[in-house]
Write a protein that binds this DNA or RNA. Structure first.
Lengths: 338, 338
DNA sequence: CTGAAAGCGCTTACAG
DNA sequence: CTGAAAGCGCTTACAG
């Protein structure tokens, strides 16, 4: 059916090896020979079989993206992340494979490693924020090219690119405190999600530093969805001694808080200030626009991918941990309490 | 480093072929031999090299997802779609590869076909709604296993699974008309997007059938983003003789319309009714909750994937066009005009 | 610059 | 039920 390098070689009277050199661009070939081969390639409409090529090169040609949480794929966060991955891969011949690695336990590390040992991928990018904490902790034993994106992994030898989540929440706390808020609530994520702990910790650290009473600074836990943010908002805002400001651990839940306030007929930021974390593409266009912490997801993904590619090129395991800056974006949803 | 079937065969004194039979599960092996082999597999910690396996089987083992539009990956639509794909692939050994097929012209069909001819994928799922109309039209010439999801392709021989977009918009029009609305605006998508034409056509067909004057039923075009919906809303709602109801071609733009109304201090549905299309996961939880057309994205994707797998199994090109039902979900954002 | 040989690690097809 | 041979379509490593 389709032609092979052998067909091309026969057609123009050179060896298979010469055809391989012309096609791959590796090794030198005289201009005349190259032309001759290329004409045959055109004539026979040859296209290389990458499976054969990859087997001979002892690789798969695929970078895997490990997705630990079902809801991640449909999120704007994932879109930005993939944008960064594609940017880093654009001028290479690597392809992207998606793997659902829903993993909760220690043993699941083996399933992840199997992707590498069966040569389904040559390296893996793991999207950390929605991963289980204890799962990430197993990575140092995995012995495969792997970069974690979105969360610092403390186990030695695990390469990760992340932003300073603790500082982001702290900046938001300081912003609200500076405006005069003293009763501030926090809506976090499930604590088995790796970054949820960090963000919640930043809030409780801040409250302790400022000696804010625990009773006035309640912590609620959602699941990062708009719906759970709305539920949190309905509960918090109808309580006696309701907070004058609420921080959500991600923008989606902040959106949910806004829906709750709307449902209750409360004005934002007049009656309550709302802050988020992520700076989703829609955060600026909502009414009110959302005060939030911008995290450079695209850049983290691009950098992480680049680290992985360098490791794959050099044969040395990816290493190092890199932090990226977060920044506070103040918009309409926060103001002085009245 | 890692062991091969040959190592296993040597270790337990059988032929390589017997090991292959045990591992693949194809062909028969005595229970005793199987046990012996499996013990060696455990001892040597053998894992099959899928690249070698796939080369020998003349396949790649990957199903490709063709993504025609950058913004698609970060959308809830894509999340639901991938959910359906994964459901269909769950009990198989196929893996998922992602390809950015940003393609606008006729020639780009060749780039798409190259994915197949270079054996990067064995078959492709193309996400149609955000694809260019003229690009889809080239598919009949492609000669590769391919299923289009989300849009009927009229070119003969192209397999597609889709929902009745025309009927969905018509139901929404009838709902609003039935409530008493006569000045209805429509916010569509860019006409080079394949489904944008269908949805807009359904609206103009309806207006003509009901003899609604063009001046009272303006058509605006956005780009499916919240931002563009907001811009449309700001323009339409501030015009003289503003519409009493607005239909958006997708939920994201409907959300944008709601933001615009909010910005202008208008009540929904008191001052203006809003309808969308998609039924995003968040549509029910927003305030007001959104009246919209539910399209079974997950089911379309699962069915399309199944058709592709069947074609790959049988060696017969995927064929047929299947429609799935849409349904109108009436919620709080629509009511009688006052 | 060019080529013949061996090999990547499996499976298909044929025998027995 | 089991095995020896040939082959999948390339690349690596070595010669010349």
């Amino acid at each position: 059916m389709s032609s092979t390098m052998e067909d091309v070689a026969r057609e123009c009277g050179v060896s298979l090896m010469t055809v391989s050199r012309v096609i791959s661009g590796r090794g030198s070939v005289s201009a005349a020979t190259r032309d001759k081969v290329m004409r045959s390639v055109k004539r026979l409409d040859f296209q290389i079989n990458t499976v054969a090529s990859n087997l001979a090169r002892s690789r798969s040609g695929f970078i895997g993206i490990g997705i630990p949480f079902k809801g991640l794929i449909g999120s704007a966060y994932f879109g930005e992340l993939m944008d960064g991955v594609q940017a880093a891969l654009a001028s290479t011949e690597w392809e992207i494979a998606l793997f659902d690695i829903r993993a909760r336990t220690f043993e699941d590390g083996g399933r992840l490693q199997a992707l590498y040992r069966t040569r389904k991928v040559d390296g893996l990018l793991v999207v950390a924020p929605n991963a289980h904490e204890e799962f990430l902790a197993t990575f140092s034993t995995l012995r495969m090219p792997l970069v974690v994106i979105g969360k610092q992994v403390d186990t030695k030898g695990v390469c990760s690119v992340f932003c300073d989540d603790h500082r982001g929440i702290t900046m938001l706390c300081e912003h609200l405190h500076g405006l005069g808020h003293r009763r501030i609530a926090f809506v976090g994520g499930p604590l088995f999600f790796s970054v949820a702990q960090t963000r919640e910790r930043a809030f409780t650290d801040f409250c302790q530093r400022k000696r804010l009473p625990k009773s006035g600074t309640p912590v609620w836990r959602g699941d990062y969805s708009l719906k759970s943010g709305k539920e949190a908002g309905l509960a918090l805002l109808q309580a006696a001694d309701a907070p004058t400001a609420i921080i959500a651990a991600n923008d989606m839940m902040a959106y949910g808080l806004i829906e709750a306030a709307r449902k209750l007929g409360l004005d934002i930021p007049g009656d309550v200030s709302i802050g988020g974390f992520d700076d989703l593409p829609t955060a600026a266009d909502r009414v009110p626009s959302l005060t939030t912490v911008h995290q450079p997801v695209r850049e983290m993904a691009e950098r992480g991918t680049t680290l992985l590619l360098e490791a794959l090129d050099s044969g040395v395991a990816p290493k190092g941990t890199e932090t990226m800056d977060v920044s506070l974006v103040v918009r309409e949803s926060t103001a002085r309490p009245r």
